[in-house]
């Protein structure tokens, strides 16, 4: 192969890649935060006895989980304005990733909720706590600890989904890499470096989640 690797062009634009990565992380952080709060409410709805509460939540999860996120991204950015809802690129993507992560996190949380013994709720009721107080002080904290191991892969997956924002020209990591690729013609080098940044970031995220898991573990 007559190709010599030359990273000079990529290093010259490395700052752009880092800015892109920072934006990727920012998009993921805000979306997952909103998605987690929303997903928690949906998870409680999913295990509700009342069909009026349970069914809309189940419908939401089914629809979102059966749509490719790229379709959602394009729909929100191109189709919604036609229907009178005009959002900026970033706002539109954050909205999509929040709704998308909400559905996935709701499923993760639901599994965590089901593993909490009913007796703990009864113990809470017996000392006079209201159902809401029990959810806030007992169920949610325990559920969160239960799901931390599976939360890690969901969070990493959602972080990687930020690359789809490139499709609507949000200047995150993948978008910046494509720009450098086009400007420098250093195709292999650009994507090697971009890939390295994704892998490194995901590894750090996974390590952070493991630390959280250890520190929050219920002592025994």
């Amino acid at each position: 192969m007559g190709y010599t690797l030359n990273f000079a062009a990529v290093w010259r634009s490395f700052d752009q890649l880092l800015e892109g990565l920072a934006l990727s992380l920012g998009l993921a952080f805000i979306s997952i935060l909103i998605g987690a709060l929303f997903g928690l409410l949906v998870a409680f709805a999913l295990i509700a006895k009342s069909g009026w509460v349970q069914r809309p939540a189940a419908t939401y999860v089914t629809i979102i989980r059966n749509l490719p996120i790229l379709v959602l991204v394009l729909f929100a950015y191109f189709a919604l304005p036609q229907m009178g809802v005009r959002l900026g690129k970033i706002e539109s993507f954050v909205a999509v990733l929040s709704i998308y992560s909400g559905a996935y996190l709701a499923e993760v949380f639901r599994a965590g909720l089901l593993s909490i013994p009913k007796g703990l709720t009864e113990a809470g009721l017996a000392i006079g706590l209201t159902p809401l107080q029990i959810r806030v002080s007992i169920i949610a904290p325990l559920m969160f600890r239960n799901v931390l191991p599976s939360l890690s892969s969901t969070v990493i997956s959602l972080f990687k989904d930020t690359s789809l924002a490139a499709a609507i020209a949000v200047p995150e990591l993948t978008f910046e890499a494509r720009k450098i690729n086009v400007e420098s013609f250093r195709v292999i080098e650009t994507w090697i470096v971009a890939s390295g940044l994704y892998v490194a970031t995901c590894s750090v995220l996974a390590a952070l989640m493991r630390v959280a898991e250890r520190r929050l573990a219920v002592p025994r």
Binding site: P117, G119, L120, E122, A123, G124, A126, I138, L142, V218
Partner: peptide, 8 residues
């Protein structure tokens, strides 16, 4: 309760 049900 029989199973104590302490908040773990």
């Amino acid at each position: 309760f029989q199973q104590f049900n302490l908040f773990p």
